[in-house]
Amino acid sequence: MSAADESTSPRPAAEAIVGRQRILLWLLGSLLKVWARTLRIEIADADRAALGRRDIPISLVIWHNRLFMGAECVRRYRGGKPFHGLISASKDGAWLVGFFQMMGIRAIRGSSSWGAREAANAMIEASRQGNDLGITPDGPRGPCYEFKPGGLIIARRAHTPLLLVGMEFDGPVKQLRSWDRFIIPCPFSRMVLRCRQVLPSELPKDRQAAIDELTRQMTELNGTRH
Rank of each mutant, 00 (worst) to 15 (best):
Y145D: 07
A46V: 14
M69A: 09
R48D: 13
A49C: 12
D132C: 12
G171S: 06
P137C: 03
F169K: 02
R11T: 14
R22T: 08
S112Y: 14
R177G: 07
R22M: 08
E168M: 00
I43E: 14
N131W: 02
A49H: 13
G139Q: 05
L96A: 14
N65E: 04
M103H: 13
A44G: 12
L31K: 06
L163C: 14
Q217H: 10
D5K: 15
Q129F: 00
L86A: 11
F100M: 15
P143F: 02
C144I: 06
S7C: 14
D180E: 05
D5H: 15
S113P: 10
C195L: 06
W95S: 08
T38N: 11
C73A: 09
D212C: 04
A116Q: 04
Q175A: 01
I58W: 13
G110I: 09
L176D: 00
M167A: 04
P143W: 03
A126K: 11
L86M: 08
I153T: 10
N121L: 14
G166A: 11
A120F: 08
F169L: 03
A16P: 00
S88A: 07
L51E: 13
E125P: 01
L193A: 06
R66D: 03
I58S: 07
N121C: 02
A44Y: 13
N131D: 04
R75D: 14
F169H: 03
R11I: 13
I184Y: 07
K81S: 13
D5Y: 15
L203T: 05
A120T: 09
R66C: 06
S178E: 00
P12H: 14
R54D: 12
A44W: 12
L60N: 07
P204H: 10
R22L: 12
A209S: 02
G93A: 11
I211H: 01
I87H: 06
A210Q: 10
